[in-house]
Amino acid sequence: MAEDLQIARGTKEEMYEILIPQIKALIYGEPDLVANLANIAAALKEQFGWLWVGFYLIKNEELVLGPFQGPVACTRIKKGRGVCGSSWQQAQSLIVPDVAKFPGHIACSSLSVSEIVVPIIRNNEVLGVLDVDSEKENLFDKTDQKYLEAIVQEIVF
């Protein structure tokens, strides 16, 4: 497949439905985790124009910054800290309509207003998280959760 992304227009669901097969094609047959995470982050950022899209991977009991698109980010996050660390600890997706109201939020960027974090789980173990930030309040919802959870299921570790 050529590495060109077809940017979709329409409803959020329609955009995800067109994007997901493209993500699958981008990562199909590529065994390198970093390359795949980089392409997934880029595809999501290109399609939706969010402020920040990226991955944190668990290394030595910390979330360590992985491939991302957007402003510079926090490098390490402890379990239970901030939205990412809380998603890891709870092993569930978290949608935060206003990060200023999230107890213990880690402000990697002062531009971030809302956030969704989706854990990457294999065999009941969290291996990392997909983190997405927006400058808009209350941007993320159950539709984003559904499709982003489907996307992280495609990641091969």
Rank of each mutant, 00 (worst) to 15 (best):
Met1Arg: 04
Met1Trp: 02
Asp4Pro: 00
Ala8Trp: 01
Thr11Phe: 04
Lys12Leu: 15
Glu14Lys: 14
Glu14Tyr: 08
Met15Ser: 06
Met15Pro: 05
Glu17Gly: 00
Ile18Asn: 13
Ile18Ser: 11
Ile20Val: 15
Ile20Ser: 09
Ile23Val: 15
Ile23His: 13
Lys24Tyr: 13
Lys24Asn: 12
Tyr28Asp: 13
Gly29Ala: 12
Gly29Pro: 07
Gly29Trp: 11
Asp32Tyr: 15
Val34Cys: 08
Val34Ser: 14
Asn36Pro: 11
Asn36Trp: 14
Leu37Trp: 06
Asn39Gly: 15
Ala41Ile: 10
Ala41Tyr: 12
Ala42Val: 06
Ala43Trp: 04
Lys45Leu: 07
Lys45Asn: 15
Glu46Thr: 13
Glu46Cys: 06
Phe48Val: 02
Phe48Asn: 04
Trp50Thr: 02
Trp52Glu: 00
Gly54Ala: 05
Phe55His: 07
Tyr56Leu: 08
Ile58Val: 13
Ile58Leu: 08
Asn60Ile: 02
Glu61Cys: 00
Leu63Asn: 05
Leu63Gln: 02
Leu63Arg: 02
Val64Cys: 12
Leu65Pro: 10
Leu65Trp: 07
Gln69Tyr: 02
Gln69Phe: 03
Gly70Lys: 04
Ala73Met: 09
Cys74Met: 09
Cys74Pro: 02
Thr75Cys: 09
Thr75Ile: 15
Thr75Arg: 15
Arg76Ser: 15
Ile77Glu: 06
Lys79Asn: 04
Gly80Ile: 02
Arg81Ser: 07
Arg81Lys: 13
Val83Trp: 00
Gly85Asn: 03
Trp88Phe: 00
Trp88Cys: 01
Gln89Ile: 00
Gln90His: 04
Gln90Ser: 01
Gln90Thr: 03
Ala91Tyr: 00
Ala91Arg: 08
Gln92Met: 07
Ser93Pro: 06
Ser93Trp: 00
Ile95Tyr: 07
Val96Ala: 03
Val96Asn: 02
Val96Leu: 04
Asp98Phe: 03
Val99Ala: 04
Lys101Gln: 15
Lys101Ile: 06
Lys101Pro: 00
Pro103Arg: 13
Ile106Trp: 06
Ser110Val: 15
Ser110Glu: 14
Ser110Pro: 14
Leu111Met: 10
Leu111Gly: 01
Ser112Ile: 08
Ser114Lys: 07
Glu115Gly: 07
Ile116Lys: 02
Ile116Trp: 01
Ile116Pro: 01
Val117Ile: 05
Val118Ile: 15
Val118His: 02
Ile121Ser: 07
Arg122Phe: 04
Asn123Gln: 12
Gly128Ile: 10
Gly128Val: 12
Asp131Arg: 07
Asp131Thr: 11
Glu137Leu: 09
Asn138Ala: 14
Leu139Pro: 00
Asp141Val: 03
Asp144Asn: 04
Lys146Met: 10
Lys146Gln: 11
Lys146Arg: 14
Tyr147Gln: 12
Glu149Ile: 00
Ala150Pro: 05
Ile151Lys: 14
Val152Ile: 12
Gln153Cys: 08
Ile155Glu: 11
Ile155Thr: 14
Phe157Gly: 08
